[in-house]
Design a protein around this nucleic acid. Structure first.
Lengths: 220, 220
DNA sequence: AATAATTTTTAGATTAATCTAAATTTTTTT
DNA sequence: AAAAAAATTTAGATTAATCTAAAAATTATT
């Protein structure tokens, strides 16, 4: 049988919270992420376990089964493809697409996803730099580093963000930092750990530690 | 407050069944169209009336209010725009898009609809020839005629279909009849009322009365 | 106009997803 | 290892959308 909008969301969130290592996710963490109460989460977990989508033992937290992982990754694939569509084809800003993609990701139709993927030219990354799983569900997280791990004097390329909040993305827009920007760390200010960086060999500015922690970059 | 997926569907169906004249729609007709039971329809009608979306008096059938009409037309606008997208951009056949558009039509976001509309070049008609309401909700049904009303010897242009069933559309594909085709009625066969028609001054074939009844055409 | 047939509504349940409050289990802290 | 704190589950409701069976209203037919 089919999975509901809500079930898909739980699976997607379990995937996100369990991280690369597939760690156990707690009931409270899910309640937080789904904006529901722990009791509601417990009910849903029992249901997902019954459907064979998660491994669940009372009080022990949850992990996705293979089947659950497959569903979650397909939802992520759809989410990211729709985000590419919204930005590349409809001209939305990268700060505007998340909520709409949250809806579109649940439209069922494999046929639709595959045609959308082809229409977009089989993109490998979404507008925030997140990798798009392929049709078979292969999702390889590129091993970018966080800007805080970059040494003074190094030049790196901006490849993604950890925080997807519109306010953060808009802040980057104002700073002239976009995917592909070249960032050179000039110095770290003792006072507030902010960094002086040069963007695209071009303009220089301060970015706060908070911002640095949320920028994914690649050595070149 | 927002309208649910289900509420939007009821409004859309009431709109369709009440026709151009805004006639009263019966509970049973709605049960049929929504694939539910009359009792379920009654419950929903009470709810829609409470929200001010329909005029409803017990046992008297329903009509849309101005507000309900607006919602219905917006759903129709979204449905038809998405159909254009699916056919024009993703390469789906006109017989394949209905079910997917039934889902997409409920994605909320005015911003999305307006950008989609612009991306598609503000199309006036969907892939079945149905007119697309504009952003203000103006929906002008063009006054096409049904092929059965065309005289022998007349040449007309195919502009739309009354039946949207995939099997009918596939039948037209096999007959080489598409939107814009020029159809000339050569003769009506006494025996089964089938028509001999010539398509695009090119090939000739028989079409059944059933088919003729579902073809919308325009004199030129 | 009375009766029969049809349509519609009401009454009372059901399912999915949620809730609050209370009970239980696990974890942490003395 | 008790006691306290935190996390989780259970019990019992609630809301939206649906259902079946029975009652009521309308329409059609003698």
């Amino acid at each position: 049988m089919q999975n509901s909008f809500t079930e898909e969301n739980y699976l997607k969130i379990i995937h996100a919270l369990s991280g690369r290592e597939g760690l156990e996710v707690s009931t409270n963490a899910l309640a937080e992420s789904t904006s529901t109460r722990a009791a509601s989460v417990t009910d849903m977990l029992r249901k997902l376990a019954e459907k064979g989508l998660i491994h669940y033992k009372k009080y022990q937290g949850v992990r996705l089964t293979e089947a659950g992982e497959k569903v979650a990754i397909n939802v992520i694939r759809k989410h990211r493809l729709w985000e590419v569509f919204l930005v590349e084809k409809l001209g939305f800003g990268w700060d505007e697409v998340h909520d709409i993609a949250e809806e579109l990701e649940h439209i069922p139709s494999d046929h639709l996803v595959e045609r959308l993927d082809a229409f977009l030219g089989h993109p490998r990354f979404d507008p925030h730099g997140d990798p798009i799983p392929d049709a078979k569900g292969n999702l390889t997280e590129p091993d970018y580093l966080v800007l805080t791990d970059v040494q003074i004097g190094e030049k790196v390329r901006m490849m993604g963000v950890l925080d997807h909040a519109p306010s953060f993305l808009q802040h980057l827009d104002r700073a002239g930092i976009t995917l592909g920007s070249v960032i050179e760390i000039r110095e770290i200010n003792e006072y507030d750990k902010s960094a002086s960086v040069q963007i695209n060999e071009n303009h220089t500015l301060f970015i706060s530690l908070e911002v640095s922690k949320n920028l994914l970059v690649q050595r070149r």
